[in-house]
Amino acid sequence: MELKIGHLYPDLMNLYGDRGNIIVLTRRCSWHGIKATVEEIRTGEEKRAAECDVVFIGGGQDREQKQVAWDLRDRQGPALRAAAADGVVILGICGGYQLLGHEFRTGTGEVLPGTGILDLVTVGGGKRLIGNIAVASDLLGGKTLVGFENHSGKTYLGEGAKPLGKVLAGYGNNGEDGTEGAYHRNVVGTYLHGSVLPKNPWLADYLLAKAVERRGGTLKLREIDDQLERTAHAAALHQVGLGGKMEN
């Protein structure tokens, strides 16, 4: 089995350790006996994200996010939408998550176009939502996710997207409705940095399993000794006052 991981805009959308997610996806692939190749796709390039099995898009600073928003709309967008409909696994973090929605109305009144893959909109907020966060994930049968959020945009989900989970500690999508992240089919968006996948290996494996399944693979993911990851996850829960309460 071979998986192609597309890293969209690694040069512009790579804030806060987003690279960690790519490291985790490739490492875990090799532990599962899957050969993984990473394809970096930059603005202006003709390489198609849609030819990948997993597409990752990270967060970026305002200026960079603006730059990729237009590239995403005009160049990668249509193919990426088709890919999403075809079941390609897509993970968007923070700024990348926002661009998976319909649009991002920034604090200065500017409107950045999104891909509309997830039914959600983001509006620039005044206060930056910063801090450790823990989420009970609906997608993963209630398993917890831990990370660090740092965003001023507030995201509101429409009918077509389900929240990735409920906020146990922190702010989440908008700090108002108690939701965090969003998913639809195999597309997942979240505000969690940390990086998110290292301390939540079940999310990494969920995404990989979906990618394998889409390729018609029968490969069963191997059990990996995640002792260290679990310890780190537990420590992060403990840090937000949820120590000992959650079991994964």
Partner: peptide, 9 residues
């Protein structure tokens, strides 16, 4: 810095 994500960079 309260965010340790940078360790991954």
């Amino acid at each position: 810095g309260t965010d340790v994500s940078w360790l991954w960079d």
